[in-house]
Design a protein around this nucleic acid. Structure first.
Length: 267
DNA sequence: GTGATAACCTGCTCGC
DNA sequence: TGCGAGCAGGTTATCA
């Protein structure tokens, strides 16, 4: 389940392998989620950046190849990234003899090719909140963004509008660290300041640990991340809270399994 | 426009 | 051992 730290880790590893390379005749899985991969054939790759959980390959013909990894997406580049198994959804051969390969078991990912900067057909990307490490992401911004909706705080965070890049793992971790109840619909100013700090901290730690590998996630070089050993809330239902020893609970919140401490994160 | 919910998708785990 | 049900969850579409 690649979130911002996982996508950033993959981006940083892929960047030197793909920038300045020219794409040959690409291949894609027939699902409409992936068929646009072939539209990048013949283009040169000028840059590889990230926005939230999206990878943006800047092409030399004023277009962008956009890849979202969904739940189980993996990207690797090299001479022989993967054998041709049933889960490879796209291949982009590169002019140095290597290839960029996208593999996605559950097919929740998406590949698009759009005019550079035109995200009008990718709603989530077009309406993405600020990057967590951008000066525009402030406690005040977070406070105002949360107040603008009556939805649960965790649901809003997963919606990518208050801040870009959070998924279920890092949202649970940040809310635990900030002592904010995930099902709350209002956020006080002091709580917004704690949550702002926590979001930045858990994502920065996640990047330093090269992501969280629970099942499918691998870096672009095929290695596991190590952030799973730093998790203090997500996936620990039934275990004692690191802060107060109260047993952590989990429940379904708007369709997402949510873990929290009923004592530290009181309603 | 907003909020809630279903659907997509497949490997894995668990209970029988 | 084998089978079926349920679960995991990011994004999009649909409906109220």
């Amino acid at each position: 389940m690649p979130e911002l730290p996982e996508v950033e880790t993959i981006r940083a590893e892929l960047e030197p392998a793909v920038t300045t390379r020219t794409i040959g005749q690409a291949e894609s899985h027939p699902s409409t989620k992936f068929t646009e991969a072939v539209h990048a054939s013949g283009a040169g790759i000028e840059s590889l950046t990230r926005r939230g959980k999206y990878l943006l390959f800047g092409l030399d013909d004023d277009r962008e190849l956009i890849v979202h990894l969904g739940m189980t997406g993996q990207l690797q580049a090299g001479a022989h990234p993967w054998p041709h198994d049933d889960y490879v959804r796209a291949r982009w051969p590169l002019d140095d003899g290597s290839e960029l390969v996208y593999r996605d078991v559950r097919r929740f990912g998406r590949i698009r090719v759009v005019p550079a900067g035109d995200y009008s057909t990718i709603t989530t990307l077009a309406q993405l909140g600020p990057e967590p490490f951008d000066p525009a992401f402030t406690p005040d911004h977070l406070h105002r963004a949360i107040r603008a909706s009556s939805r649960r705080i965790k649901t809003q965070l997963l919606g990518q509008r208050p801040v870009a890049g959070l998924g279920n793992i890092y949202a649970d971790e940040a809310l635990w660290q900030a002592r904010v109840y995930p099902g709350a619909r209002k956020l006080s100013r002091p709580a917004a300041e704690r949550l702002h700090l926590a979001i930045v901290d858990v994502l920065r730690t996640g990047i330093e640990n090269r992501g969280t590998t629970l099942r499918d996630y691998r870096t672009a070089s095929g290695e596991q991340g190590t952030n799973q050993f730093s998790l203090r809330c997500y996936g620990r239902s039934g275990e004692p809270c690191d802060r107060c020893a109260t047993t952590l609970r989990s429940r379904d919140l708007d369709g997402r399994t949510t873990t929290w401490c009923p004592s530290c994160q009181h309603r």
